[in-house]
Amino acid sequence: MKLDPRGPRFVAAVTTVVLVVVLVTGSGWLALAQTAVFAAGSVDPRWNPYALAYRWLVQPRLGPPAEREDAAPVRFAQRVGFVFLAVATAGYLSGLTALGVTFAGFGLAAAFLNAVFGLCLGCEVYLLLARARKA
């Protein structure tokens, strides 16, 4: 399956905003909602609710993408995001706020790098692991 590479960047931009709100408000429930978003994207990146918004609202206003990218690295990155936000959610909801802040901060850093610079850390880790398996 191939993806429009602008979609994951849009998803990362929305995720960045959500995680800023999580960090500002300390909302474990919003962290839980973001965890659910990552869960959907980890099954199929096209199922991420933000990706659906991109496909329905943004993509029709843009021309077709110049190229497409493999979905497997994006799926892996969504799984990494899921794990980080699951830990953040557990931290916030159990009263271990420092744990929540730390892992939400890690998620924010990764989402920000993808949204602003197109650097998907989870995708890069996926590619490194794929190369290591071949070696």
Results as ranks from 00 to 15, higher is better:
96 L>R: 15
3 L>G: 05
29 W>T: 02
9 R>G: 02
81 G>R: 04
91 G>M: 12
17 V>R: 00
44 D>Y: 01
113 L>K: 00
10 F>A: 09
58 V>Q: 09
16 T>L: 06
122 G>Q: 07
3 L>N: 08
131 R>M: 00
67 E>R: 15
93 L>A: 03
96 L>E: 15
103 F>V: 01
74 V>M: 07
22 V>K: 07
95 G>K: 06
115 A>K: 04
115 A>C: 10
43 V>P: 00
79 R>Y: 05
100 G>P: 08
119 L>M: 05
132 A>C: 00
109 A>S: 07
34 Q>D: 12
107 G>C: 02
133 R>N: 12
93 L>M: 13
86 A>R: 07
109 A>Q: 01
111 A>I: 04
57 L>A: 15
92 Y>M: 04
78 Q>L: 03
113 L>R: 01
46 R>D: 04
25 T>F: 11
11 V>S: 07
107 G>H: 02
16 T>M: 15
60 P>L: 11
29 W>C: 01
95 G>Q: 13
90 A>G: 15
114 N>F: 07
62 L>G: 10
78 Q>K: 10
106 F>Y: 08
87 V>Y: 13
84 F>I: 03
83 V>D: 01
86 A>E: 01
40 A>N: 01
72 A>F: 00
15 T>F: 13
130 A>M: 03
104 A>G: 05
70 D>W: 04
93 L>C: 09
98 A>E: 14
23 L>K: 09
16 T>C: 10
120 C>K: 06
122 G>I: 06
75 R>A: 05
127 L>E: 14
14 V>E: 02
87 V>F: 14
97 T>V: 13
6 R>L: 08
129 L>F: 10
95 G>A: 05
58 V>K: 05
19 L>E: 14
122 G>W: 12
14 V>F: 14
12 A>K: 02
118 G>V: 05
91 G>P: 09
128 L>C: 01
135 A>V: 07
77 A>G: 06
123 C>Y: 04
25 T>G: 11
37 V>L: 08
95 G>E: 11
18 V>P: 02
1 M>F: 11
41 G>T: 09
55 R>S: 14
76 F>P: 03
51 A>G: 04
27 S>M: 05
18 V>G: 04
84 F>H: 01
34 Q>F: 12
135 A>G: 13
103 F>R: 05
135 A>E: 13
35 T>A: 15
87 V>H: 10
73 P>H: 10
87 V>C: 06
42 S>Y: 05
123 C>K: 05
113 L>H: 02
46 R>H: 08
106 F>N: 00
104 A>P: 04
83 V>P: 04
88 A>K: 13
115 A>Q: 03
107 G>W: 03
101 V>T: 13
87 V>P: 11
67 E>G: 02
105 G>S: 13
34 Q>M: 15
115 A>T: 08
102 T>Q: 05
7 G>Q: 14
42 S>C: 10
25 T>L: 12
92 Y>V: 00
81 G>Y: 14
14 V>G: 03
46 R>T: 11
32 L>E: 06
77 A>K: 05
14 V>T: 08
